[in-house]
Design a protein around this nucleic acid. Structure first.
Length: 652
RNA sequence: GCGCCCGUAGCUCAGUCCGGAUAGAGCGUUUGCCUCCGGAGCAAAAGGCCGUAAGUUCGAAUCUUACCGGGCGCACCA
């Protein structure tokens, strides 16, 4: 509604400026400094002032005189040095919200692919992984809410060094057989991902101590690549078990995927070989004959050095003939755009409780068992990867460009974000020893290799426990299982909001006290507002009344009377901006902006809630209006929370 | 050395892409608010040379340059 009117106003000014001054100006609108000045401000006169060599104030006055009436606008006035402040026709606006005219969504032909999570399947997920998954998942929800078709991929590097290191730990250090490991995986008393977390840290430490270790790793990697033998079997066991556990952890947060593309298939289906041929053909890479990279296939720095600041070539194929991670990533990126000329085979992996099916890649044709969705062939690709990999993402994009896929290169978006580090206080709390130097720092980097970090499930458990305490105090009459379900919704709301409230390029110095807070700018605050709104409506029903049909019971006259009140008008206006907030958050690529809107919306409702007593209102018409506001707030709050992946509990 | 990011209230952060009216939140501090739809709430106060300096502009937290602090990249690791 707000959006439409804003557009109407912009178009009206655009046409008027063109007619009056012959200038084709892209008309911007902004929020007036104070709400009392109107709903929108048009600063166009300032932009025109230079070209016309006239005072902005004069231009603004001429524009207002010339433009004539605009549908939905009640008044326009010149203010300050030349602002044009626009006042909406409040009644018409409220009418539009009360009795919305259905409009058909423009069909979108884009196929957006978002890759996120991508955790190495060799240990438990940690807080940094959660930031990735929550950012990715929320952006997916945002795009889908705006009507886009989105495919979610979670890439599984099941043949890499990190898995190999855990295999080394099991095989060479702990002397465990595949059967031993299988027993550990099946033992309900063992948290296999936690066990691997510790084993991985120990193995990593051993590498620096033991002279045999690097040989072990090479042997394991080789075995994993060939796909046969005890070491390969161990790698499969570990990776598959950990992937299953990661999916479970992510599901606690409401994060689901469409497809798990796996590195093993990229290898077995020779994706790299196909990409290698393409890169050689187009001379995007060449065989280095001298210097330190002699014998390697490299990409010259000119291809990607634009802003990555390096003067060195990037090795794509090592002198021993094996491909680097970037090489594989170029192949994968080509496949995402349908440019590789090859495809995976697919099989359904599991069905989520909500019925959604998760698929995984395989390296051989599957027996026909119902339709297989189309994967890949994207028109736009977002890779949710932390900012430290910018350089490598630049190389991947350069690869596409060098292959002539300029369009696709431009549509390859590195959806980057800063790391989650630990605050010094948090380290102390976790019993982590800090060097004197580290104690001085604002934060300490998480390191899987050192086993330094906050495990995702531990954090979620702590949040649930804390929420449960609160729920138990307030609702001791509810069954325990019920309390736990509510607590879990609150905990997830707190966690997702906490991870989303920071903009992407802000480093999060993780701190338990902040993350565990349920007050102020937090998820539970927003949830609480939605719950309060619902409580009112429930209370109404408990009194034997039903929710009025607002569209028929609220007359235009009643509406006009209500929105004449500045208070009501501002609240209604604020609540009607959910779509605008969503659009802006998508354009800026900042889920944080939508999170902030949710918070402001909740503030606005709490304000309304506190100020007006809805159920005790004696004036019937006014009460109906108040109920409508409540219902409107509730809908907008729940919808926005839903896009953030946060549920609204039944009670709090 | 080169490149990227950050520096805004005691603390944690929005606002910077696209310059505009009196720079905003939350936490913390201080003070009020339960006869009232549940206080995980509401109201209010105190708290800022927006890192520094120059430049562009009618106008700069926002654009340019230099400098000062801090972080991260620049592997035949991923």
């Amino acid at each position: 509604m707000f959006h439409l009117l804003e557009k109407t106003i912009q178009e009206a000014f655009h046409a008027q400026i063109l007619a009056q001054f012959g200038i084709d100006l892209d008309v911007a609108t902004e929020q007036p400094r104070q709400s009392s000045l109107g709903e929108l401000a048009v600063p166009a006169a300032f932009q025109l002032a230079r070209q016309l060599k006239q005072a902005p104030k004069k231009i603004a006055a001429e524009l207002v005189d010339g433009i004539g009436p605009i549908d939905g606008v009640a008044a326009m006035e010149v203010a300050g040095n030349g602002y044009i402040n626009v006042r909406f026709d409040r009644e018409a606006y409220a009418e539009g919200l009360l009795r919305p005219v259905p409009r058909s969504d423009s069909s979108v032909n884009e196929r957006i692919i978002i890759e996120h999570t991508n955790i190495n399947p060799n240990k438990a997920a940690h807080i940094g992984h959660l930031r990735n998954a929550v950012l990715g998942d929320t952006f997916v929800r945002m795009l889908r809410a705006a009507g886009n078709r989105v495919e979610v991929q979670n890439y599984i590097d099941n043949t890499g060094v990190q898995v190999a290191d855990v295999v080394v730990g099991f095989h060479f250090i702990e002397r465990k057989t595949p059967d031993d490991v299988r027993r550990l995986i099946d033992d309900p008393a063992v948290r296999f991902d936690y066990l691997c977390w510790d084993l991985y840290a120990r193995t990593s430490a051993d590498y620096s101590a033991s002279p045999d270790a690097s040989g072990w790793r090479a042997e394991t990697l080789h075995a994993v690549e060939s796909g046969s033998g005890t070491l390969a079997e161990l790698a499969h066991l570990v990776a598959d078990a950990i992937v299953t556990l990661h999916l479970k952890t992510m599901l606690r947060l409401g994060v689901e995927y469409d497809l798990l593309p796996r590195e093993s298939e990229i290898l077995h289906l020779k994706f790299w070989a196909a990409a290698f041929e393409l890169l050689k053909e187009r001379r995007a890479i060449f065989l280095e004959t001298e210097g330190k990279n002699k014998g390697c296939w490299v990409m010259p720095p000119e291809a990607f050095a634009g802003d990555s600041g390096t003067e060195d070539s990037k090795v794509i194929v090592r002198s021993n003939g094996t491909v680097t991670y970037v090489g594989k990533d170029i192949a994968y990126q080509l496949w995402k755009f349908g440019l590789l000329g090859k495809d995976f085979y697919y099989r359904p992996m599991m069905r989520y409780p909500d019925g959604h099916e998760l698929w995984v890649t395989t390296d051989e044709p599957q027996p026909a068992n119902g339709p297989v969705p189309t994967f890949g062939r994207g028109t736009r690709v977002f890779n949710v990867i932390d900012v430290r990999q910018s350089y490598l993402q630049d190389v991947v994009v350069a690869g596409l460009k060098a292959l002539g896929a300029v369009e696709q290169a431009a549509r390859s978006i590195h959806f980057s974000y800063e790391m989650v580090a630990l605050s010094p206080r948090c380290c102390i709390e976790l019993g982590i020893e800090l060097s004197a130097e580290d104690r001085q720092r604002p934060y300490v980097e998480v390191s899987g290799r050192k086993g330094l970090g906050v495990k995702a499930d531990d954090l979620i458990d702590r949040l649930v426990d804390k929420a449960l305490e609160e729920v138990a105090v307030r609702h001791e009459d509810q069954p325990a299982a019920e309390q736990r379900r509510i607590a879990s919704e609150i905990a997830i709301g707190a966690l997702r909001y906490f991870l989303l409230k920071f903009t992407r390029n802000s480093v999060i110095a993780f701190d338990f006290q902040e993350a565990l807070s349920f007050e102020g700018e937090t998820g539970p605050y927003v949830q609480y507002a939605a719950v309060r709104a619902r409580n009112i409506l429930r209370k109404l029903e408990e009194r034997g009344e039903t929710l009025p049909s607002f569209a028929t019971e609220l007359s235009g006259e009643a509406l006009r009377g209500a929105v004449e009140s500045e208070d009501f008008w501002q609240m209604l206006l604020a609540a009607s901006k959910a779509d605008v907030a969503l659009d802006r958050a998508i354009v800026s690529g900042e889920p944080a902006h939508l999170a902030r809107f949710a918070f402001q919306l909740a503030q606005s409702f709490n304000n309304f809630y506190h100020q007006y007593h809805i159920l005790t209102e004696e004036n019937r018409e006014r009460r109906t209006f108040l109920l409508w506001m409540t219902e409107f707030f509730r809908t907008q709050l729940m919808r926005t929370l839903g896009i953030l992946g946060i549920q609204t509990p039944e009670y709090m």
